[in-house]
Design a protein around this nucleic acid. Structure first.
Length: 287
DNA sequence: GATGCGTGGGG
DNA sequence: TCCCCAAGCAT
């Protein structure tokens, strides 16, 4: 399976900027943060602008976190921008400005978890790690386990399967990580997989079993309209698009349907360190 | 382990 | 239209 998928990848891989040979480890790291829950096509323009402005961790660390949150724009989950800034600061202080290559060092950085640590070590440094994102877990669920969808979160079984498949040579392992993710992203997709184009079609257990319908626990839907999350987004958008502090009334105008909810959202944004209150009932992105 | 956390595109 | 979901992390 590994060889077939890697061969397919060599022929069909999308030309993405963070995959080019001149992409720095920092560039890979920036892409990984942005791609956490945001699609590639929306990441691309922000990624380019970000690296143009902050080509190194030191460059980002030298500016206030508010600038990072502003530059993040509408990618969503702005705490990722905050964590990327914090990670850049940690890299500057603890690693002399060089993105670490050790998995444990990476995992210890703000905003870097199991997946992202493996991804950076693998893609930036060609090291040998299992890299389990939603794409890879779906590919393994179908091809190996024979189920349409993986579990909600990474399981010990996922890790066992991925470890068993991992090529011995580090460069091969890194290539396989990229290839298996790509397969899940463009062929073995969640909604309507393009099995006719799949290099693993002949060894896919899910296909061999007749593509049985998913019968696991209901997958968590994300409600959004009218949630605190949406309220937070509206409030933060006002601060992002304004340079300098904003009077409370202007912020309040961004969410009028539920005052209690608005106040809760504002309090949580301040609690998260994304927003600060300044003198005279004025609010701004936290520095 | 379940929940909260943004936003917008595509089927 | 509405619903699903997109390279997760922290708590």
């Amino acid at each position: 399976m590994v060889e077939r998928v890697v061969d397919w990848f060599r022929a069909e891989a999308r030309d993405l900027p963070w995959r080019r040979s001149d992409a720095s480890a920092w560039a890979v790291m920036v892409s990984e943060f942005m791609l956490q829950q945001t699609p590639v096509n929306r990441v691309l323009p922000v990624y380019e602008a970000w690296l143009d402005r902050w080509p190194t961790p030191a460059a980002l660390a030298a500016e206030p976190v508010s600038e990072a949150v502003r530059a993040w724009g509408r990618l969503g989950y702005p705490r990722r921008a905050q964590r990327l800034h914090a990670a850049a600061t940690a890299i500057e202080e603890a690693f002399d400005g060089v993105v670490p290559d050790a998995y444990e060092d990476l995992w210890a950085l703000p905003g870097v978890g199991e997946y992202t640590a493996g991804a950076i070590a693998s893609f930036a440094y060609q090291k040998r790690h299992i890299v389990l994102d939603t794409n890879v877990r779906r590919v393994l669920a179908r091809v190996v386990t024979g189920t349409e969808f993986p579990a909600a979160a990474t399981t010990p079984q996922d890790r066992r399967i991925a470890t068993a498949l991992l090529p011995d040579a580090a460069p091969d392992a890194a290539q396989w990580a990229a290839a298996s993710m790509e397969l899940g992203a463009v062929v073995c997709t969640a909604r309507s997989p393009r099995c006719d184009d799949c290099p693993a079609l002949k060894l896919c257990r899910w296909v061999a079993d007749g593509k049985p319908a998913y019968d696991g626990p209901p997958r968590r839907g994300q409600t959004y309209e009218g949630t605190d999350r949406q309220a937070r987004g509206r409030l933060l958008a006002v601060l992002r698009d304004t340079h300098g502090p904003v009077p409370r009334e202007e912020l309040e105008a961004a969410w009028t349907r539920d005052v209690t909810q608005r106040e809760r959202a504002l309090a949580s944004l301040m609690s998260d360190g994304l927003v600060t209150e300044e003198e005279g009932e004025m609010f701004a992105l936290a520095h």
